[in-house]
Design a protein around this nucleic acid. Structure first.
Lengths: 188, 188
DNA sequence: TAGTGAATCTAGCGTTGCTAGGAACAAGGC
DNA sequence: GCCTTGTTCCTAGCAACGCTAGATTCACTA
């Protein structure tokens, strides 16, 4: 069975290669530039090979999203790890979240803007997503009444709104600090 | 000069026809279904005619966005017209904003999600947009310190975040009331 | 060494946004 | 009334898109 095991391993590696290439291409030139042909070119296989790993282009985007969610979780956790829940922790979480969105706009888009086949807001959601949400929840605990879940959703919405309106050029870039301060005031 | 005037008028009417058709098609079947061919078919002209009115498909989307912004402004104004700025007015504005996003998801996408060539957050922005922002600002006035602009941006971000995370299926639909209540608590 | 099955490629389908070139038509001068 | 001019509009076509069918090549098994 070791031969087919090696094959499985190689297959999985190539899937990862494709996802990485998609992510790089998207970060360099935006998602519009991520076509199946260019992607195939980057991984040095023919175009149809992509379809033996993923159901379609959307599935590749979803895979990039999952990787990004895991990354965001790590950063959030690191940011709030040794902070008492409350004002200080809220600030750290907000800044970490927005920093990720600014540093990886394309991945952020895949995660939270582009149409996705991933389950969100249900038990079947990716673990990393639930963990990210959990971190946001944790810093809000002192502030919450009984409905911590909904408060977290509003916190997330505010951060997400700021992130996307900034990224699409719909909000004044030079006032980001003030907005973050206000978010901390409101939620901290 | 009356002949060329009539022509100008007819031209403008057809431009409007195109924008209306794009909007209808988008509301019925989503923006993916809005192709230049289908659009031309609806207005009963050939495809190239679109390009004598608009620089490209994106410009048509922008036109739908501008119309939507004007609509939203009217609804916001009506919602908060005879309310004292403060908690009550914040609630009305929030509900009106989110209701519009739910009732016209495709137009809302054109306005605030899709890539746009429209100027936002500058003096050149469409008047209706500045007015909408002004209405949001007005209801927040009692709550604001010196930086009313940034507070309004955060308020808008929270509403926008809720709207898009809901629309893309990323947030629990059954808790919308709780989230709105929290927004009112925070900003009212 | 011949046969089998998986892996991979070439080629092509239907559709996309957009454009070039020519046909049809109305307006104005003789 | 006829001919020129200029505008309006359409047919046809380009390159690129996501995706798939069929043939081909290759590695492994018996």
């Amino acid at each position: 069975m070791s031969i087919s095991e090696r094959r499985q391993r190689e297959l999985a590696q190539r899937a990862e290669l494709i996802v990485d290439a998609a992510r790089e291409l998207a970060e360099e030139q935006g998602w519009d530039a991520v076509t199946t042909r260019r992607l195939a070119d980057r991984v040095e296989y023919s175009q149809p090979v992509l379809y033996s790993h993923f159901a379609g282009k959307d599935a590749i985007v979803d895979a990039v999203a999952v990787a990004g969610i895991a990354e965001l979780t790590v950063r959030l956790r690191a940011a709030v790890a040794d902070a008492e829940p409350g004002r200080e922790a809220v600030g750290r979480a907000a800044r970490a979240y927005l920093a990720y969105a600014v540093e990886h706009p394309a991945v952020y888009q895949a995660m939270f803007t582009m149409t996705t086949g991933l389950p969100f807001a249900t038990d079947e959601a990716p673990d990393a997503l639930k963990e990210s949400f959990g971190e946001l929840s944790r810093v809000l605990r002192p502030r919450a009444g009984q409905d911590l879940g909904s408060l977290t959703e509003v916190f997330w919405s505010a951060l997400h709104g700021i992130a996307v309106l900034m990224a699409s050029g719909r909000m004044r870039p030079e006032h980001q600090r003030e907005r973050v301060a206000i978010v901390i005031d409101l939620f901290g």
